[in-house]
Design a binder for these strands. Structure first.
Length: 911
DNA sequence: GAGTTTGAAACT
DNA sequence: CAGTTTCAAACTC
């Protein structure tokens, strides 16, 4: 319904759009955003892409994770974002979205839902609308609106039970279903009875209301599948639309898109999460009803390729991340808080970056915030769980991710560029996101974004996102949902993958005496808390992105997926598996072993421990050298210039959503300068690095050539987009979400891995190039983003938006023309562009903030010749700045925003 | 599908 | 923190 409306509204000149524009100060942007979002939802595509291909398994996984996450976290996030007002561009976007959504809702209400649905059978739009509407409801409409819409939705769903697309209604119905299903489930299960339905009122009144309505209305098990399908469709449609929109390329668009994406993501996530829940429930129910196939996912995605499931998972994580980023940190925090209430300590999907990182993030946040009541209603709980899942999923995703990542990669390859980018991002953003994500998970994550999100096995985090997974094929159902087989632990220990992922066990699980069910939410939460008390990071994503990897090495082929950047937080302890079997968590996560590993005879195809150590040494050496060389003055100048440029860009493009702060700082400037610059910040997850040795790097992508500042911003962006396009875009998006550093990744690992996949992609690509160019220079992309040389810069989607800045070595002065653009554009483009160029290191936002300063000579070179200098690039320094775990609510203040905008542009372009 | 292997989680 | 036990996934047959 809403989708239809949205589309209608989204139409350039529709009265609705006009109305919206009138409403919000940001009007144009909002409308545009809305339209874009609705139409293109480039970001969504990512999510969708993976999802589309995602197999049923994935779907299931997503459902689980997502559902919980979505219902609680997303709504809360969204709400927060809307409430906060438009502080930042993101806010603007959000607000705009909210408005639109509210409007849409109204329109929908006025209009017959049926009509809208009919209009857009695809539901893709509807899905989007739904998403939008949901946020709106939550945010703007509040409970009342929410309730009504939900009811309507449920009604709609009821009306068209068979219709696959319940659209938004379905989504809500899903929630309801969740409750209802839960209730059903509980009924089915004597133990569960009573507890489920209302059990945890938690903080979310809305959820409760929805649930109530849902329970009353129906049990749309069908809805879930449908919804999923809808989402997919929506994505496709969106992508198309988006692409069309992208062509327009408004300076504002990027932001809008991002915001939109975020909303979409959230929506998607919601849908996903709901699905997951529903699926699970549905599964149970279906068994009863017999209407549904055993695998709801299948029903939903019957058309979808099996790969889609994984993608979906990743998407979930990524989505989470995206949503987080898009919605802003606030939402993130809210989600986290919600999650936290659940228990989570800090973890993120390993994702879910956020992806991967998601889990970590979620977990971490939750720990702190804890507010939430501990128990979420099912939704809340689920949400929390989902968040944790995202993060976990991200982590796990990263773990399991390998497979997922691969799938996502494949899907990405197949999928349109935009969608791919998103996937990459997510897997991602994580948001992987996931852990992505991809994580994912995400998970992410979350972005918060799950093992699934671990998104990113190779992706590393991202994410993002990445999450859920497959980890264990055995462990995972065909659907991709995790499933456990616990017999003695009652699924309340980390032995249980489901529990560890922060998700409830599903009907698929063959566990015995399982307490990891909504009915035992309290028990689950308590247990989680206990575990967290012992080990706060117990639920954090295990996969964290690390800079040092030489991704390129493995990746040469194009294994975008290989997540070299990702590393297992605690490392493995393999003694007989040689780290070549899934016994090895590193291997399982598709990440290389690191110094943290105590493995013996490591032969991890994703990276041996020895290699990792060597890489780090090289990096450290470079960094040291660079730091010694330090060209503070020049750097400062450069920075100032860059700021200028960024500022200009920022204005021109209108704000970009906060997150991606992927700054490319001129080499000259180096990290210190960047630091000097107020605006720039690199989030560093734990990561240390994020240093990309300019030397090796050079990953230069084919596009690198244009690298020079010469190219107009747009052109550059375009070029970049075209070249690295997907990845780049994705990374951006993920970054927007929040590039989190490893830490973030830890949280989310979302991160996030989600994104992780994307991240992985980027990293891998970059690494490849680097490797080719120089093995020595591994680029580290702390959760933020990795530049893939050639084409893809990718952000690690982390829940938090790390702003990675590439130090632009080039002088803005030199290229007055390109000036700002150059810098901005150059950042990514250069990286991409200059294959030869020493390039720049991508600044990953690493928690550690490491800088790599190019030798003075290099810097000078850059100064002297903008492009050449950049290319020579030795000098580029990467500064890793510690970034707040959560992306600032406000979009990147400084240049970062500009950079983001740039990325956004790029995104648009590609789209 | 049963049994074995493996390494993480949990416990001491 | 190290060693041992427990556990469930991964793997093999």
């Amino acid at each position: 319904m809403r989708c239809c409306v949205m589309k209608m509204e989204g139409s350039p000149e529709s009265p609705f759009s006009n109305y919206i524009s009138n409403l919000s100060p940001i009007k144009p942007v909002n409308t545009a955003r809305v339209a874009h979002g609705l139409l293109g939802i480039s970001s969504p595509p990512l999510v969708f892409k993976s999802p589309h291909t995602a197999s049923d398994r994935q779907i299931n996984l997503l459902r689980r994770f997502q559902y919980p996450q979505i219902s609680g976290a997303e709504t809360s996030k969204i709400d927060d974002g809307s409430k906060k007002s438009v502080d930042s561009p993101e806010d603007m976007v959000k607000s705009g979205i909210c408005l639109t959504s509210s409007l849409i809702v109204d329109a929908q209400t006025s209009d017959n839902v049926n009509n809208s649905e009919q209009d857009q059978p695809g539901s893709s739009s509807g899905c989007v609308d739904e998403y939008l509407s949901d946020p709106v409801d939550a945010d703007c409409a509040d409970s009342v609106n929410l309730v009504n819409p939900n009811v309507k939705k449920s009604d709609d769903a009821l009306q068209s039970p068979e219709s696959n697309l319940t659209n938004f209604k379905i989504v809500e119905s899903d929630d309801i279903n969740d409750k209802g299903t839960k209730g059903e489930v509980s009924q089915a299960r004597p133990e569960q009875d009573g507890e489920d339905p209302k059990e945890q009122p938690t903080s979310e009144n809305k959820m409760e209301k929805i649930k109530e309505e849902g329970s009353l209305a129906k049990q749309p098990s069908h809805v879930c599948p449908n919804f999923g399908s809808d989402l997919l469709v929506d994505h496709a449609s969106r992508q198309q639309c988006y692409t069309s929109g992208a062509q327009v390329a408004h300076p504002h668009e990027p932001i809008q898109l991002i915001a939109y994406n975020g909303s979409e993501v959230s929506q998607l996530q919601r849908g996903m999460s709901r699905r997951c829940l529903q699926f699970e429930q549905a599964q149970q129910e279906t068994t009863k009803d017999g209407t549904y196939s055993p695998n709801p996912a299948i029903n939903l995605f019957g058309s979808i390729s099996p790969a889609s499931s994984t993608e979906l998972e990743i998407l979930d994580s990524s989505q989470v991340e995206l949503t987080i980023s898009s919605h802003k940190e606030q939402t993130m925090t809210a989600m986290f808080s919600a999650n936290i209430s659940g228990k989570s300590p800090v973890a993120v999907s390993k994702p879910s970056g956020i992806g991967l990182h998601l889990n970590s993030i979620v977990n971490t946040l939750p720990m702190g915030s804890g507010a939430s009541g501990p128990i979420m209603s099912h939704h809340l709980v689920e949400n929390k769980i989902s968040c944790s899942k995202l993060s976990n999923s991200v982590e796990r995703v990263s773990l399991t991710a390998g497979d997922r990542v691969l799938q996502t990669k494949a899907s990405l390859a197949t999928s349109s560029t935009t969608s791919e980018s998103f996937h990459n991002m997510e897997s991602f953003n994580n948001l992987q996101p996931p852990e992505h994500q991809f994580h994912h998970q995400l998970l992410f994550p979350l972005s918060l974004y799950a093992r699934a999100c671990s998104l990113l096995s190779k992706l590393s985090c991202t994410t993002e996102l990445l999450m859920i997974s497959r980890k264990k094929a055995s462990s995972t159902d065909g659907d991709g949902c995790k499933r456990c087989n616990c017999r003695k632990t009652k699924c309340l220990k980390l032995y249980c993958d489901c529990f560890a992922a922060g998700i409830y066990c599903a009907a698929i699980c063959a566990c015995q005496g399982c307490f990891n069910r909504p009915e035992y939410e309290d028990t689950v939460l308590e247990t989680r808390q206990q575990i967290e008390s012992r080990n706060p990071l117990a639920f954090a994503p295990k996969i964290v992105q690390h800079v040092t990897e030489f991704q390129a090495i493995d990746v040469e082929d194009g294994d975008l997926f290989t997540p070299y950047s990702g590393r297992h937080k605690t490392g493995c302890n393999c003694k007989r598996s040689m780290c070549v079997k899934k016994y090895c968590e590193c291997y399982q996560a598709n990440v290389g072993c690191s110094n943290a590993c105590r493995c013996e005879g490591c032969r991890n195809i994703h990276g041996r421990k020895e290699e990792y150590a060597m890489t780090q040494e090289i990096v450290s050496n470079r960094t040291n050298e660079e730091s010694l060389e330090g060209m503070a003055d020049e750097k400062l100048k450069m920075v100032s210039n860059n700021k200028f440029l960024h500022a200009e860009l920022y204005d021109l493009r209108s704000l970009t959503p906060p997150t991606p702060s992927f700054e490319y700082i001129s080499h000259d400037k180096d990290a210190p300068q960047s630091r000097l610059l107020p605006g720039r910040y690199v989030l560093s997850s734990e990561s240390d690095f994020s240093m990309l040795p300019s030397y090796a790097k050079s990953v230069s992508s084919p596009s690198n050539s244009h690298g020079n500042d010469m190219l107009p911003k747009t052109s550059k962006s375009l070029d970049i987009a075209s070249h690295g396009q997907e990845n780049y875009n994705i990374t951006e998006t993920t970054g927007q979400f929040s590039p989190q550093f490893d830490e973030l990744a830890d949280f989310s690992d979302h991160t996030p891995l989600p994104n992780p996949s994307s991240i992985m992609m980027a990293s891998s690509a970059s690494s490849k190039t680097q490797d080719k160019a120089n093995v020595s220079q591994p680029q580290v992309y702390p959760g933020s983003a990795r530049l893939s040389f050639g084409s893809s810069l990718r952000w690690h989607s982390s829940p938090i938006t790390p702003m990675t800045r590439l130090g632009e070595t080039k002088n803005q002065a030199q290229d007055s023309d390109c000036g700002l653009y150059e810098i901005l554009e150059d950042d990514t483009p250069e990286i991409l562009k200059d294959s030869s160029a020493p390039i720049t290191s991508v600044k990953a936002s690493s928690p550690n903030k490491k800088r790599v300063s190019p030798p003075h000579s290099h810097i000078r070179e850059f100064q002297s010749s903008s492009s050449a200098g950049l290319k020579s690039g030795r000098g580029r320094k990467f500064i890793l700045k510690s970034v707040p775990s959560f992306p600032p609510l406000t979009p990147c203040l400084d240049s970062e925003d500009c950079t983001q905008q740039k990325y956004q542009k790029y995104r648009h372009l590609p789209l």
